[in-house]
Design a protein around this nucleic acid. Structure first.
Lengths: 349, 349
DNA sequence: CTGTTAGCGCTTTCAT
DNA sequence: ATGAAAGCGCTAACAG
């Protein structure tokens, strides 16, 4: 009962009394094999418990059944649910997922590309938002079939699958406008992060559509961190006029805003409404629970993998960017604007 | 400039004017190659940009450089940080991580084992808490080098690396005892989940060490869900005597407890102290923020991978279980017990 | 419809 | 210290 080394195609062939070529055909092109032979082969496969040796197959075919996932941080909850979609789709199509964690370290990124060069991976899913270091050079570097997710990716040859940031932010701002807010601040403006820039555009779109004057718009920069939300609130409080609602570039910023406002003694959502973007695990657990734009993560993953596998088959997508429109998750952090100008309702905590 | 197919060992050999055998030696056993030859080979490798074809290498050596990770849910935040540790350690040793997501579906588990059978993976990391379906049978099934993490694993041949549940719970209960609590309830008792049983033991240990009478102990069962925490609170309130503190089997249960208590109008932590286990991302964001036992996730991952790689080299660990003692993360959900019996302090929300 | 055969790129005896 | 040659297990011509 001790480990008999795995059955090979030869074992099957011998048992079925055919050649190994026939076994291979019976598996991959069964219609080219006589029914009786096919039955004998299948029988032999069952008896031996044969599974094709994927290494040999890949070597022979010059291409593997692995997809390399390169992500800056595999621990990021925003990341992991996309992974679920990627995995589900890949598995159904017979592919495996090879994952890496680069922490945006160029050296690590480079190292992972060895999986590509050594033919261990057939395609690449990028979470990093940039072409891997070492691929810009025009030398021997060959960029394999690649699809970007998570971070908008501005490169002519690489399809991007992600959330429609602009439409999502638009939904959020429209929600606020619909219930009466007019002075809505945007927290988390950025000059470099493409996704943030687009969210800001959605914000502007919504306000402009309703003719909200520029004087009522307040845009604070930020980097998406909780701390940046806090800081933005402090800065706003040094101005003469406060918004009634905060549209934040992401949930962590929104949480920072909520914390800062609460620390100042305000009663949320009564005094101020706050809305986020992403729907991270924490969003439902702060008080007030955060109304936010939910990333369709699993769908993004599925879609990205579908696109990559088509690419592997030589089919290019029509659109370079495939943007999925997100929905609002309504929780408790948004309500109608206060009738009178906001004021401190309680003591500092 | 168009994709030249990757350099092979032959290209290097030709350029260095040696045989392919020498190139292979220069790479793997450089001390067996004359210095001048070695230099020429290295030069040629640099020029061609050669990387060993991992498929060919694995085929020839009969073993791959991939580790298969089988997890019920790769989106679980408890999971993803262990993954970081696993990945870091694996990469340093030249291994790649192949990941799977089984949702505890036997069929999916089985499917993934094909990676093992087809020699695509050299070893296995199990997050599932049970031997893969299909491996119990005594037939041809060969169990590869395996290490379990995440869920305690009671199988004689498989090392388990995880948190010391008992010691962790003990730390938590000792913390409560130290600041004066005596009537401490344990929420989330289980007859089947090994980790939960051990946490309960830690709870008993701490109380017994201080001679807290059985009459002061209250144990409520639960399944680790937020809802189970809520339910337990409701059931406790049907009894005559309430605890001053709640030791919960995990953070989600603790959050359920906090929510139920808050809904009843209590002021936490003043009226009741609550302590969790795991330190999930949400723990810091509910109010009051949750004091909890933090899982040393990255360390668990690192340790598990080290163990697995030793196993691959034929070294068995001395202990079957390697338990890492966790630390308490102190936040705001614990304080001294109220001086008078708890009472409803406010109106229902 | 089936068998023979030539490699895929590599590591590793076995000679020299 | 180096080279020649034998495969690892498989697929895909090419013959029959």
């Amino acid at each position: 009962m001790s480990a008999p080394s795995a059955a090979t195609i030869e074992d099957v062939a011998r048992l079925a009394e055919v050649s190994i070529a026939t076994v291979s055909r019976a598996i991959h092109t069964p219609e080219k094999v006589a029914k009786t032979t096919r039955l004998r082969v299948n029988e032999a496969i069952a008896v031996t418990g044969y599974t094709t040796n994927a290494m040999a197959r890949s070597l022979r075919m010059g291409k593997s059944n692995m997809i390399l996932i390169v992500a800056p941080d595999i621990g990021d909850p925003n990341f992991s649910n996309i992974l679920v979609g990627l995995e589900t789709e890949a598995r159904q199509r017979g592919y495996g997922l090879l994952i890496s964690h680069t922490q945006n370290d160029p050296e690590r990124e480079l190292e992972y590309l060895r999986f590509l060069n050594s033919n261990q991976a057939a395609g690449l899913i990028l979470f990093t938002g940039h072409i891997p270091y070492g691929f810009n050079a025009g030398d021997g570097a060959r960029l394999p079939s690649t699809v970007a997710v998570f971070e908008p990716f501005e490169h002519a040859d690489i399809p991007y699958v992600g959330v429609d940031d602009r439409a999502g932010a638009r939904k959020a701002v429209d929600h606020l406008l619909a219930i009466g807010h007019r002075r809505i601040a945007f927290i988390g403006d950025s000059k470099t992060k493409v996704g943030y820039i687009r969210r800001r555009q959605g914000y502007e779109d919504g306000l402009s559509a309703l003719g909200v004057p520029l004087a009522d718009r307040q845009v604070m920069s930020g980097d998406g961190s909780l701390e940046s939300g806090r800081v933005a609130v402090e800065q706003l409080f040094m101005r003469d006029r406060l918004p009634t609602a905060f549209l934040c570039v992401n949930d962590m910023t929104a949480i920072g805003v909520i914390l800062a406002l609460t620390a100042r003694g305000y009663d949320l959502p009564h005094d101020f409404s706050v809305i986020g973007f992403d729907d991270v695990p924490q969003a439902g657990f702060i008080s007030p629970s955060l109304t936010t734009v939910a990333q369709p993560r699993t769908a993004i993953g599925k879609h990205a993998m579908t696109t990559l596998l088509s690419l592997l088959n030589g089919t290019k997508p029509k659109e370079r960017e495939m943007l999925l429109v997100p929905d609002l998750t309504i929780r408790m952090s948004v309500t109608v604007p206060p009738t009178r100008p906001s004021r401190v309702s309680g003591t500092r905590y």
